[in-house]
Each structure stands twice: as structure tokens, then as C-alpha cells.
Design a protein around this nucleic acid. Sequence first.
DNA 1: TTAGGGTTAG
Length: 759
Amino acid sequence: MEGPSPKHKLVEIKKRSKSNPEKEHSSKSRGGEEPMVQTSKFLSRRLPLSTSTPTNPTSKFLPPFLSQTGTQTQTPSSSPLPPTPSFASILQQIKHQRPLQQAHALLITSALANNVFLSNRLINSYSSLGLLPIAHHIFHQMPLKNVVSWTILISGLSKNGLFTEALEVFCQMKDSGVAPNAVTFVSVLPACAHLGMIRIGKSIHGLLIRWGIEINVYVETSLVDLYAKCGSLGVARRLFDQMSERNVVSWNAIISGYSENGLGEEALNLYKRMQSNGFVPDFVTIMSLLLACSGLGRLQIGKMVHGFMIKCAFENDELVVTALMDMYVKCECIEDGYQVFCMKLVKDVVAWTLMISSFSEVGYGNKAMELFHEMIAEGDVKLDSVSLIAVLSSCARLGALQQGRRVHGLTKKIGFEDDVFVGSALIDMYANCGSLENARSVFDGMAQKDVVCWNAMIAANGMNGCGADAVGLFFQMKDLGLNPDAATYVSVLCACSHAGLVDQGICIFYSMVDELDSDVIPNLQHYACVVDLLGRAGRLNDACSLLNSMPLQPDTGVYGALLGACRNHENINLGLEISEKLFELDPQDAGYYVLLANMYAVAGNWEGVKTTRVFLRSKGLKKAPGFSSIEIDREVYAFMAGDRDHPQYDDIDKFLKALITKIEAAGYVPDTKFVFQDVADDVKRDLLYHHSEKLAIAFGLLRTQPGMAVRITKNLRMCNDCHTASKFISSAAGREIVIKDANRFHYFRDGVCSCKDYW
DNA sequence: TTAGGGTTAG
């Protein structure tokens, strides 16, 4: 039974016992585990079930079971009995499966097989090694279980990430009639916190109060962490402010709560308070501060934390160093992040994943893939679902189908075939590499599909020009009883927009606005999609009315969609008006200025072009240059417009000239309207011929086998003239040309594009 | 009791 001693004493004893293994045995006695009554706080020479001395000095240096010889005396069994106190502490110290199983076997054959205290220790040891099925088995075999048995199992499950199972065991415990204590609550609350299950968390909080469980700093910290992790920062903060006693962990819980919820400023402010209250930050504090800097993009403070890390010798802590890498890359200092990564002594899967996804996000896809192969070559890095998702996402961005297929093979090989997260990433990878069939076969083969999988498949159809199928999937999903979320609506509306399914898109949008079968409240992205849908269809007036009547303040996404439509439909006056709004909302985005300059160019207003460009330069803004990339033999080659750096440039140029001559004979007329520079016509034509799309197509035709499709990825929207030229090239060369641009796929076959020129 | 990396949309 639970001893009546105050909890803080237990904490104190535990702390002491950690630093002195000899006291280990007495420390736990307060929890009521041992079959003896404790009389002294720290010293117990009265040993349960054995009169042996607690520690044999040589035993530390021997394998656990060899050190037992002759240490037991008075035992009521003839079997080889372990002397309980030493045995119990040894059980706790075993760090490997084999010796633990040997000890387990020894226990089973002894008279102590049913000893609750030893069985609890055994469960704890198996849990620590992650061997939960064995821990569970022992637990179920126990004829008598006490509160500690239940608590150890709950805690073991929770610490091994089996949060749902931990909650289930907690419920079973309640039903079994064993009353949980404070430690039980401290074990189960983190499970709720990790699952983000605020409702269950609240009811457990209620139980805690109703049953009069003693509140200590551990319980309160767990509650603060629960509410903070579930995003209820107000409640977390109130509980934190009301705490009568706080420790570093309590401060960390609230600070990391703010950091993780994107409230970095508040996290930094609280840290100042923590310092002024005399608390010394530990590695978790440092990690939370770095996370706050990452979220805020506050490089200067991040660097200060880095300095502090060096001063306090945290720079060798693997977890902290990964957080430091994250800070640098999120503050757009990928080189510094990479440098920290390279200096890292132990590169685990998390560090590799962070670096791979960072390079991929900033557009260095080849570097990301190179790192992935390096990681595999290391041999001892254990891939997990997150790392696979990161590399699949990199393949998706690159449009690297061959490499993506290899990664798919790898996911099967290492047993991640049934992971819904990996499945969604695979669908996305195939969709972004222009292989809708493969995306569909992954989708169809999935044993379980969540909303994200459906969203990915809907988006896959949308971007590959199968809008009607995307709409079909949307309704099929609803028929199956799955609730579409905000992202589902974005995917399906976007699919309608690209396919020109205006009426269907509007119907779906208004079913959401009118709350018919949907609990999703339309957000800015949804409005942007519908403005885009109307704008693409040339219904600029309707798009404007929607924009003016929407209940939310339009953002750059909504205005940007309308500006795109103004560009497509050459409505300069409206374009000018919208540009003004965009410059106000986001004066730092060069893209809008370039779009306006290009609109002026299309209208032949070269004065307007000049003014806009001068203005852009005066503000020191630069837009990311357009480039087209192509994967050949698992290598990705990128081309910029007029790029003469390629080693095979002369061959490409020669081939391209012949190709242009051929398609001109077939009726292609270069459209110099899409040259946004005021130069002579022949120069315009030359500029047009050397657009990145055309260079990549020529290179692809040269380097791939006849009959093979040429697959290209462009980072921006495809140029109109290149679109026309691609149609002609597809018939002249007798090849399928697949171009993925910033918006969608274009499949050029026999002189026709899958987008039916609606884009 | 606190703890680093990821998927769908734009």
C-alpha cells in the first residue's frame, strides 16, 4: 500500500538513490513496493526476504548473475534463489535484453516468481528496453497487481510512444478498482499531451481533483505541459502562474509550449523571467529558445544562444546541436546549419532528415538527394518514416521520378508500406513527378487511408489535369463517411479551377459557405481558390465581387489570384489596381512587381516596364530566376534562360536551332509578346528560343531514348510561347513532353496539351 | 514532469 509520507520526501530520496546505488533499495520502499516495512529514511539494513549484505563490492564488476554466488542465505526455497535486494537493484541496472531474460528466467524458477515488487521491477526493465510485449505479458501473468504495477506499465507505454495504449491501460486500471496515485497521473498525462487529446486530458484533470490526488510540482508541470501541448496556452499559463513551487522542468514546459505554438516572443520573455527568478537553464531550455528563434527568424538571438551553448558546454549535446542546426536553416542560413551538421560527431537520422529537407526546401534538390545517398551509405543510420517522407518530398519537388521509384522500393524493403504518412508522401511524389497511375496504385493499395491520403489523391488528380476525377474522389470520400477538412476543400477547388469546372467548384464552395454537410469554415485559401477559379474562366467581374463581399480581409493570396487572372486576360487597368493593394500588403515580394512589369510589356507599355523595374531595383528586391530541370539517369540538370554554362551547350544549341526550323515549317510562329524586354525583333526571337523550358526539352530529346517521354519541372509558371512550341515539338519529335510548372502539369502529345490551353 | 526532423493546399 502507498506509504503516508509526503511526496517531496520521496522525491528527495529518489534523488539521493540515483547518485548512490546502494540506497536504491530503500528509495523505492516509500512507494510501498517492497514486502517490508521501512523504518529509516535512508538506511535499511533490515532486508526483505534475505539477510545478505546489500552489496558485494566485487559484484559490480561481474555479469549480474555470476555475482550472486553465496550472497543468499535464508530463503524458503530449494531453487537457485536470487537475493532480493541485490537482485532488485540489478534488475534495474540491466541494459540489455539477454541478461534481462536470464534474470527473468531465474526469477520464474524461484519462489519469488509472484513477488509483486520484483515483477514490477521486471516490467520496468523490459519497458526501458522498449520490449513492451514482454512487459505486458508479465503484467498480465501477475496474480496480484498494485498501483505501482499499473503505473509502471502506463509509464512504459507512454515513454515508448504508445500513448493510446497507455490511456487504455489507465482506463482498465480505473475499472479494476486500483486507485491511481499522483505518479500514475504524472505517467498518463504526457500520453494525453502527446496525442493532443485535450478533452480526455481535461477529464483526467477532473478525476485528479475529484479523487483528491495530492498536487505536487510533478503533477502541476504535467498539467501545464498537457494544456500547452494541446494549444490551450491560456489555461497552461494560468496553471503555471498559480504554481506554488516551480522547477526548471516547469519553466521548460511553459516556455516550450509557447515556442511550439509559434509564440516565440512570449517564450523569450518568459525565459528572461526564469533567469531573473534564479533558475539555471538546462538543455531543454536551450532547445526551446532555439525553437523560438527558428520560428521568429531571429538569427541574432539564435547566435547569442549558440554562444551561450558553447559557454555552458552544451555544444556536444546531440539534441541541442540538432536544434541549433534547425535554428540556422530556419533563419535562412543554410550554410551555417550545414556547417554545424558537418561538425556533428554523431549524425543521427533526425539530423540527416533536417538537412535533407532544408536543402530540398531552398531548391537545392540535388544536394538533398546527395545527402540522402550519403546517409544510406553510412549504413548505421536507421531510417524511419519521417526521413522517408523528407526524401520523397525532395523527389517530388525535383520531379525526379526515377529516384522516387527507388525510394518507393526502399520503403517496401524496410517495412513502411503500410504507414499512412509515407503513403501520402508517395502519392504526392508520384503526382508531382507526373505519374498519376503510380499515385493511384499506391492509393488503391493502402490498407488504411486517412483524410490526408484522400487529399493527396484529390490534389494529384487536380494537378495532373483530371479535375473531374478529383471531384469524383471528393464525393466518394464523403460517401464513405470521411469528413473533408480545410485542405480537402483547397485541393478540390484548385482541381476545379485548373480544369475549368467553374460551376462544380462554385457549388462545392457554397456548400461549405452555407454549412451544408460541412463543418469547415471557408478560410482565405478557399477564397483565393475561388477567385482563381473565376479569374481563370475570365469572369473577372465575378471574382472582384466575391473579393469585395468576402467576410475576411483579403490577403496576398486572394489578390495574387486576381492579379494572375488580370495577366492571363490582359486586363491592365484592374491589374494596376490590384498591384497597388499587393505592394501595400507585401512590399518585399518582388514577384508582384515582376508580374506588373510583364503585364506592361504584353501591352507594349515599355515606359511602365521601365518604371516598375527601376522601382524594384531601388528597393533592392530580386525575384528568384526561372529555371527548368530534367532528370536523366538519376541526375537532375537545371537550365536557366540563355544558360550557356552547360558543358553540352553547343550541341544543345545546334539541336534546338534545327528543331525550331522544323516546327516553324510546321506552322509555329514565335510569339514575341512574351519577351519582356524592349529589344529588336530578332533579339526577341533569340531570347525566346533560349528560354529554360526549350533548353531543357532539347537536352531531354538529345539524352533520352527515342519514344521515351521527356519530363521537365519548371519553378515558375510556364511561358505561353514555350507552351505553343512544346505542342509543335511533341508532334515533330514524336515524343510525349511532360512539363510541370508552378501550378500544374502539361502533357504534350501529338501537338495537343492535356490542359486544353486552359491554364 | 520538460526534449530535435516529416505528408495533403498555395
